[in-house]
Design a protein around this nucleic acid. Structure first.
Lengths: 173, 173
DNA sequence: GATATTTGGTATGGTCCATAACAATTATCA
DNA sequence: TGATAATTGTTATGGACCATACCAAATATC
């Protein structure tokens, strides 16, 4: 069977598909059947990630921090004395793309590049005082408004199980 | 304290941060401390999603189907007689961006747009025979090579729990 | 000391995502 | 009925993110 573009006498499977949904049998726009899609790992994973990022941005609106920027500040705080390549690579950010990110954070006086005295090629990354203060506030916002939402939704035990499974996927898939 | 760009006499917190990691105390490039990052929902979620998509693309290399294209085929198969706006919106795809996607699938003879006889504005979407065949093969590949990997990694029970929690986040977060 | 490697950076292109605008068609309703 | 509003598919366009090639300065290697 070949598909006819104009569907002249299309008495196909379920009572003329080419007519579309406008039979009197259906009152309004009924929802589509997701079917196997709702069981697809990638699909549900992507949609959850979008919702989580969306919520993250709302919670951080006052601080104007994206998830990526937040992760940079967290990593720099935890690992002082590291250069751009090290920070970027552990976050999965390519060095060229990391430059603009740092330009942004540095222009807002949240972190600073310091030329290393050992290897004068590399820039050591450090949080400024303002950066530390902003990160502290960000952590509280994330904990109270963002991560807490997961507990309300799943419960403490399930939350930890979820994070654990996601981490396992991220590392071993 | 203000950050000095050149770090002249920077005897700061932990033994000269500005020197960077080049002390003889550490043999090579030791891994950074992820710290609280590994507990951040968004971080671990995003990284898991990237890994899963990456694996999906590898499994589908022979069929050249992206996750988004696969989801379109699945949804069209499950919901024959729907138009572009309906399919696109339930997938979270904006109509303008859906055009190129359909152009691609149609040029490969996987699906077809049929002008509706009820509403001559809308294009009814249908899978071609080749589209149905490709989708069938894709489903098998996904089931055996992709989703099965989750069972090996988490086990059947955990897999279902994970999907359930992600769906809940996607819908109620 | 000549060569290779590393680091931060620029330039550039691709893909995905979002908005505005438009023609054709249909719905609304005075 | 006919004027107006809304909808559908589409184009154009810009932004955000991601990936590659390439470069100068500095360092490592031999």
């Amino acid at each position: 069977m070949t598909v006819s573009k104009t569907a002249e006498k299309s008495s196909d499977k379920p009572a003329d598909v080419a007519k579309g949904r406008k039979d009197a049998s259906e009152p309004q726009a009924e929802a589509l059947q997701l079917g196997e899609l709702s069981e697809q790992l990638g699909y549900v994973l992507k949609r959850a990630q979008l919702k989580v990022f969306e919520n993250f941005l709302r919670c951080m609106a006052s601080l104007q921090l994206t998830p990526a920027q937040f992760s940079v500040l967290l990593l720099v705080e935890k690992n002082p004395g590291r250069n751009q390549t090290e920070i970027a690579s552990t976050l999965g950010i390519l060095r060229p793309n990391f430059v603009a990110m740092l330009d942004n954070l540095e222009s807002r006086d949240l972190c600073a590049r310091i030329r290393s005295t050992n290897d004068r090629r590399s820039h050591i990354l450090v949080l400024t005082d303002k950066g530390k203060a902003v990160l502290a506030r960000a952590k509280k916002l994330v904990a109270t408004k963002h991560e807490a939402r997961l507990n309300d939704l799943l419960g403490q035990a399930n939350r930890e199980a979820l994070i654990g499974m996601l981490a396992k996927i991220a590392n071993e898939f």
